[in-house]
Structure formats: C-alpha cells, structure tokens
Nucleic acid binder design. Structure first.
Lengths: 198, 198
DNA sequence: GTTAACAGAATGAATGTTCACTCCGTTTCT
DNA sequence: AGAAACGGAGTGAACATTCATTCTGTTAAC
C-alpha cells in the first residue's frame, strides 16, 4: 500500500520511455548488448519487464533507438553554434571541445557509441544516420584542404589519425592514465591540429 | 608398458586445441564473447561441444587463453628484430609496420584484441600481460624524448594520438573507406611520426 | 460530492527457447 | 584388450518475450 500521493508527472509516458533508454544505456555501456538481459534493464529503469515491450518492439529495436538518440545528442551538440564561417582551425577546435565535453558529461553514451558490434544489430535508419555524420565531417575537411590550410593528404587518413586519437585519449582518461585537465585538453587539441595542418 | 613416444598424441592434441582457439577467435571477433555460443565454436572447430571442455575449463578460460595467444602473437612480432639500437624514427617504423602487418594478416586477432569488454572477463594473468606491453611502449618513448627526438609532451598524449590513429586507420580499411596500399601505409607512418617528433 | 464503471498502462509470473556445461556410449589410439 | 579421447544428446539455468491480471486516473451516474 502506497500511502503517499503518486507523482503524476513521473508517470508521464515520455518520461518512462526515457527512463528505459537511460537504463539500457548504462547497462549496454557497461556490459554490451548480448551481455545485458532485458530484465536487468527493467530493474534499473524501475519498471516491469513487460513494460519495456510497450515502448519498444524488441531488445533490438531498443538498442537502435538508443543508438540514434546517443548519436544525435553528439551531433546536435556539435551542430549547435558550429562556426561555419570561421577558419578551419576554429572549426576543429569546436568539434574537439564538443566531443570531449560529450565524453566527459555523457561517458556512457560516448562509450556506447564507440563500442564494436553495433554493425550486427543496427538497422537501416541507424546506419543512415551514421553515414550522414561521416559525410559532414569529410566535407568540412575537404573545404579546409581547398583553402590549403590542412595537409594535401587523403582526408580519410587525417580523420583517422585525429578521431582515433581523440577516442584513445578519452579511453586513457577513463582508465586513469591521463587527467583531462584544461591544459591537457588544450595541448591535445593543438597536437591534433599540428598533425593535420598544412 | 608404453615404450612409444607420445609425440603423435600430443601433436594431435595441440592441433585440436589450436583449432578450437582459431574457431573461437573467428566467432568472438565477429560476434563478441556474449554473442557467441560455445556450440557454435565447436561446430566451427569441427569438434564436439564436450571436447572444448577437455582443453578449457570454461568459456571464460577459453577467451583468456585466446586473448593471451593473440596479444603474444603481436608482441612477438614486434619484439623479433626490434631495432633497439637504431634511432626512434626506425623503432617507430618497425612497430608501425609490424602492427599493420598483424592487422592485415590476422584481422580477426586484431579486431578481437581491440574489442571492448575484455575487462569484464580477463583474469589476472591476461591483465598482467596487457600491463607489460604498455610499460614497454612507454619506455621506448621516454628514451626518444630524452634524446629530444620526439616532442616534449606527456607521452600518454603522443601514444594516444598515434595508437588511436593506427587502430582507426585499420578500421577504416576494414570498412573499405581506405585501401592499405604501400603508399598509404608509408604516408600514414610519416604522418604519425610528424605528429610526435620534436 | 461520492461512487461506480471504464480504459488502457503496467506488471511479473509463465512460456518456449537457447545457453553453458556434463555425461556416457563410441571411436581411436597404443 | 585397455585406456584415452571424443562426440553430441542431455540437463538445469537463464534468456527474451508474452499475456492474464492488477492498478490508476478519468469519466459518468446519481
């Protein structure tokens, strides 16, 4: 018997859907897709196991919804206030800081997005989103290359080096091998830029 | 009683053990640890499911044995003919080429080693091996820094950038976004070196 | 204003499936 | 022949998913 009044706000459907997504994110980021039982997600979300199936058709539909939510969260962060009319150096700085911000403030989402084996269960919509992001980044780099501000090198190689480096930096920070102090962040941003600039 | 050598016997056994490890590697690299049923490994290795338990105590013991075998394969490759008495530039080239060689010739082992979620099931022995490799790399970089041949920067940052970049390059190649031609390999090797040298 | 009836969201025990691992009859060695 | 290795059906546990039921907020009746 619950003698306290029920908070009707918290029973809002959107809110519950988000609770399930949040719970799934923390579980997947920690244990992977196959390593996470649906009932565990239900427990973390504090809902019945059956409730999850009111919001998502299947475990696979859930992980896809989560993937898109996470990817869009990062994409939106970068897109907001993107300095489209400033020099590539500033554009790079913006992307870099947004990404690190995201990694620090939403570590589970960042880890989840960088996990392997997404390919095995991602649906067409998720893959389309992935491709969209990729094309955007390449366009930015192509532009700065035309301006001769970055190296005259295959953009895939430059992106690989810098993006791989950022991901690795975050992982090292996660493992306590590096502290992401403002100084370290700034130095790494410069290090990356030095490695791709003309 | 048995006056015959047991060579044949043990060779067969070793061979079968390797078949199981090979099968596990291809399955784990493709589907992850939790996503791979033991009977699937047995089928790929063309042995009975029970036979696996003659060679490995559990699925977890199997993945640990596999992890160490894969890690040591890369480590041995780098250690063999390591140009310890040549300049850091050549040492880097050696590490880089060995790693790419490994990624190209043993793609499953490379992918498997770079997967997330090893932490969840790796035992002490596996983690000790991991640490050993890490320390070795840091020592090499520390030396070249003393010689003022690489940037006077936190070695963790330099390693993050370069190692992260290599991993990302391999993944891009895997996805068909880059072709690992000799020219690309050489250019990326130089790109990495440029990014860390003094 | 109070109560009864209703709609549909939520639940968690039940279901059928799949898993890691075992056991024992068969095969392969010496 | 005897021993060791093997295979794969068998086993209980854990899984994803379902569904009969409960709960809750809203409305209708008086």
């Amino acid at each position: 018997m619950n003698i306290h009044p029920v908070d009707t706000e918290s029973l809002n459907a959107t809110d519950k859907r988000d609770r399930i997504l949040d719970a799934a994110l923390s579980a997947f980021a920690e244990r992977g897709f196959h390593g996470t039982p649906v009932p565990m997600i239900a427990e973390r979300a504090k809902v019945g196991a059956g409730t999850i199936y009111r919001y998502f058709e299947s475990k696979e539909a859930l992980v896809n919804a989560l993937y898109r939510r996470s990817k869009l969260a990062l994409l939106d962060k970068v897109s907001l206030d993107f300095p489209a009319d400033r020099p590539p150096r500033q554009q790079w700085g913006h992307i870099f800081r947004c990404t690190l911000d995201f990694a620090v403030n939403s570590p589970e989402a960042f880890d989840f997005l960088e996990m392997h084996h997404h390919a095995a269960y991602l649906d067409d919509e998720s893959r389309a989103l992935e491709a969209r992001v990729w094309v955007t980044v390449q366009q930015i780099l192509a532009t700065s290359r035309l301006l001769q501000l970055t190296r005259n090198e295959d953009s895939m190689l430059l992106i690989s080096l810098v993006w791989g480096g950022v991901i690795r930096l975050v992982r090292c920070a996660r493992e306590g091998l590096v502290e992401l102090s403002p100084s370290v962040v700034e130095r790494f941003e410069n290090l990356c830029w030095e490695s791709i600039r003309a």
